[in-house]
Write a protein that binds this DNA or RNA. Structure first.
Lengths: 216, 216
DNA sequence: ACCTGAACACCGTTCAAGT
DNA sequence: ACCTGAACACCGTTCAAGT
């Protein structure tokens, strides 16, 4: 009962896997459901992937690679003045948000992560990739331009930005209809540019913090 | 070969589960290893827990409850002036960090999350609990005190703070020796109080952002 | 009542047999 | 070469039998 060889079977399996994993998660998705969806037998799976996890990883990697490619749009922003820079930044935010929204099934998979890794839950490789990308970008910007406050710690800044993206991804994965990306983006930028407190409060807190820091 | 009934068996099983889950994760940990560690047979597990996941959830809930209890230390800070407030805040930060560090095995478990939930990976219940706690706190503070900038969106602020904690937890879970909590805490507070850019740059970006916002 | 451990169920993975 | 599907392996879960 064998069918003619299907040169696109690997692609069909990946597409089927994306759907099954996105709906049921790695643990609940069954190989047989994936292969049925692709129109082949259970055994065929192992002609194209070493294991269930290997397929999971393949899908995750595709997604993360694409995301980092989109995020490179921030790199062309280095030389603009604030008046042009801000709309350009918001535009990049939009592009990234769109990518995440478009690839929601894969995003859901990636957020689940792999059970074998140390801290699987967070989609370890995903978060790790984002965080190092962030840190590298911040460090580079600290060297080329004088925009960052000298005592902004790149590690902590990368942690904060990555955390924001991760939480944002979480919201995307959970919501049924498209959130207002632009609004969130502006609200987030405001905090990054000026903190979350009233100017005089923020200044007082900052002074007290610096006093405390010198004192310890 | 039955042993005398052990009134603490449930406790012993939980302790064993914490260890096994923390080392191997939910998927890799085997019931038989947990029961062996507690000195009973495989079948005894199901006299005390409905399923493997039920135990997982039990452990996670204990941890999250404890964390939220520790985080309540921030609630006693409402009335202080900056000079006293800042050391008190840093002290709370320390307490929370200590709790996370002390309970690392459970934290690791919680970060993994449950495979059955929608967005299991992020330790969904954990992150969800944190985020709503954050938002509630911010909203309450916005009402009682006038510290937050009026256009700080509580949703986005909660998202940012929760993301920072989640990323911080991730670091704790992955590191072998105790990080310098105080240093990270100060660096993070600096950004929250004054943004991450030089004052004049931040102000220019903020102006441009407001112009852009009015314009759209 | 509480515990044991053999038996069962449910997939992931393999492999001998088909085309 | 590529595919099939029965067989195997590995646990999570159940349950009849012990004390």
């Amino acid at each position: 009962m064998a069918r003619p060889a299907n040169p696109n079977l690997q692609g069909a399996l990946i597409e089927a896997g994306r759907l099954e994993f996105a709906t049921k998660g790695l643990a609940e998705a069954r190989i047989e459901d994936i292969t049925r969806r692709a129109g082949v037998s259970k055994g065929a799976f192992y002609l194209h992937f070493e294991s269930k996890e290997a397929m999971f990883e393949h899908i995750a990697r595709d997604f993360v690679d694409g995301l980092l490619r989109v995020m490179n749009c921030f790199d062309s922003l280095q030389t603009l003045e604030p008046r042009e820079l801000v709309p350009a930044i918001l535009n990049c935010d939009d592009q990234v948000s769109e990518y995440l929204w478009e690839h929601r099934p894969a995003l859901r998979i990636v957020m689940e992560g792999l059970p074998s890794t140390a801290c699987s839950g967070l989609g370890d490789q995903f978060v790790g990739a984002l965080e190092s990308y962030m840190r590298a970008t911040i460090v580079r910007h600290k060297e080329t331009m004088e925009v960052f406050s000298p005592d902004t710690d790149p590690d902590v800044a990368a942690l904060l930005l990555t955390g924001a993206i991760v939480m944002f991804c979480r919201r995307i994965v959970r919501s049924d209809d498209k959130p207002d990306f632009r609004k969130s983006s502006i609200a987030l930028r405001k905090i990054l540019y000026g903190g979350m407190f009233r100017p005089e409060v923020g200044r007082a807190l900052l002074d007290a913090l610096q006093a405390q820091e010198a004192h310890s």
